[in-house]
């Protein structure tokens, strides 16, 4: 039973992170800096929401089997409260400008590419299957966002200032990936060196100075202790289902 709760919580953690970042990125729809990039970020959004659906469906199945509940992907996304969400804090932060959105995507895609590679080897065949399906999408997100980080960092004075400001703002939210929550079945702590290594390669190409070691890192998202931003996201995202429960297209 304990293991099963861990499995459910870990699956929800992965689902929530994909959903909340997807919801954030979706706000760029029709506001992208140029039509082609508007479509690109929206594609990434749809990939993330697709991942979230796979994880939620699996979590719902596990919960229903264990406790005779009646959960679905929709009840998990639309009828859980702020404190129940387990997403990384970085996912819920405001979009800011294009540089901030890009850099957040780069940080998360780098992490996801490492985590999902590990998940592909999982003894849980369902999680392994979801990871195998998602990794191709993530590799593209990583390529796309890496190139943007390089383009902005090694671009104009304006773009450089913006990406440097984004590094300042986002860096303290990157430590949370690697600090395991009690329920987590994938220990991400040993992915940190690989993550730092990959980020350093891209930062060097982008001529972005690498942040100093041992900085203070924010935590709490994985255990439901969120920033003030998540409540607003959830209020907007859930309002329709809360007002008209079970509404369908």
């Amino acid at each position: 039973m304990m293991n099963e709760n861990k499995l459910v919580s870990s699956t929800l953690q992965l689902a929530d992170s994909a959903l909340i970042l997807g919801q954030r990125n979706a706000a760029w729809c029709a506001h992208g800096p140029i039509l082609e990039q508007d479509i690109a970020i929206t594609n990434i959004t749809l990939d993330l929401i697709g991942q979230a659906r796979n994880f939620y469906q699996y979590a719902a199945k596990l919960m229903n089997e264990a406790d005779n509940k009646n959960e679905t992907e929709d009840t998990l996304a639309y009828f859980r409260n702020e404190r129940d969400f387990k997403n990384y804090l970085i996912c819920e932060l405001p979009n800011g400008d294009w540089a901030q959105t890009i850099l957040r995507q780069f940080f998360l895609s780098t992490f996801q590419s490492l985590l999902f590679e590990k998940m592909m080897q999982s003894s849980d065949t369902q999680l392994a299957a979801i990871a195998t399906k998602s990794i191709k999408e993530i590799q593209y997100h990583l390529k796309w966002s890496s190139e943007w980080v390089i383009r902005l960092g090694d671009g104009t004075e304006e773009s450089r200032n913006r990406i440097l400001a984004a590094v300042d703002y986002l860096w303290m939210y990157t430590g949370e990936f690697f600090i395991p929550a009690a329920y987590e079945i994938f220990n991400a702590a040993d992915l940190q060196q690989d993550w730092l290594h990959h980020v350093a390669i891209v930062f060097e190409e982008a001529t972005i100075p690498f942040p100093a070691e041992n900085q203070f890192m924010q935590t709490g998202g994985k255990t439901g202790m969120h920033t003030e931003h998540l409540g607003f996201i959830i209020a907007e995202m859930q309002s329709l289902q809360r007002a008209y429960p079970g509404a369908e297209w």
Binding site: E36, Q37, I39, A40, K143, R151
Partner: peptide, 20 residues
Amino acid sequence: SLHAADAAMAIENARDVYTR
């Protein structure tokens, strides 16, 4: 056709715009 800053971005934009 589409707009892009360089060839790599043009291919990625084309992937996103024309092969979805």
